[in-house]
């Protein structure tokens, strides 16, 4: 009993005294956790920015600004443009290319095609790294569990050499091993929460973009008929 009392049970000591496979598992989990938090913050900023830009663009678009002026602005500042602005830019460029008395149906088809392509690229960009978060969220608990099982196996194997086994002999090994599970959960829980949150955010954005595309194509079609 006194042996355990004096034993250093600090986190650092437990990590450094763990066996190599457990340490590798911990390292993996640490990297996974770092990356997933990096992506969590990146996605947080990116999605917040996308929502803000979409709001702004929809506001200016429905206020009845001249479409040509809007297009000029979007094409001029492409780097800072939001997703919705880029979709609009792609569609409007395609639309203006075919103005010399072509069939309206053909014009609208190619315009929709261009917008859809831009939309796919934007969605691809928004959804990038979400799969990584999903993977970390679902896999890292198992990886941590693997480290724990390995560590406990080792501590029981060492126990078999002792004639008289007390809880004090197993406890440090199990504590070491359980840190792996803790790290796995630490990596997984934020990743799962962030994944669910961002997935719903992006799907909301996707429906907004899709409805905007329909509305824009209607506006352009009316414009083509008038011309």
């Amino acid at each position: 009993m006194s042996a355990t009392v004096t034993q250093d049970m600090s986190l650092l000591h437990l990590v450094t005294s763990a066996s190599l496979p457990v340490q590798l598992v911990m390292l993996m989990l640490l990297i996974a956790s770092l990356l997933s938090w990096w992506f969590i913050f990146r996605k947080l900023f990116a999605i917040r920015e996308a929502i803000k830009q979409s709001d702004e663009f929809e506001n200016t678009f429905w206020r009845g600004v001249d479409l040509n002026a809007l297009y000029q602005r979007a094409a001029g500042a492409r780097d800072r443009a939001g997703s919705m602005e880029r979709i609009f830019e792609a569609g409007f460029r395609e639309f203006t290319k075919h103005q010399s008395g072509m069939d309206i149906g053909a014009i609208m088809d190619s315009t929709r095609g261009a917008m859809r392509a831009a939309y796919q690229r934007e969605m691809d960009r928004l959804e990038a790294h979400l799969s990584f978060l999903a993977t970390v969220g679902s896999v890292s608990p198992y990886v941590g569990l693997f480290g724990t099982v390995w560590g406990i196996m080792n501590s029981f194997r060492e126990l078999s050499n002792l004639t008289q086994a007390t809880i004090a002999h197993v406890a440090p090994g199990i504590a070491e091993a359980l840190i792996a599970t803790a790290m796995g959960l630490f990596a997984a829980i934020p990743a799962v929460i962030a994944y669910n949150r961002y997935a719903s955010d992006t799907s909301q954005l996707a429906t907004r973009y899709e409805s905007f595309m329909e509305e824009l194509s209607n506006v352009l079609q009316r414009r083509a008929v008038k011309l």
């Binding site: 956790s33 990356l35 938090w37 990096w38 969590i40 990146r42 947080l44 880029r86």
Partner: peptide, 19 residues
């Protein structure tokens, strides 16, 4: 455009900070 994602370094720093 996609490479110039807004808070690339900022989010890395925040991730480190969290840990």
């Amino acid at each position: 455009a996609s490479d110039e994602e807004p808070g690339l370094i900022r989010s890395a720093a925040l991730a480190l900070l969290v840990h």
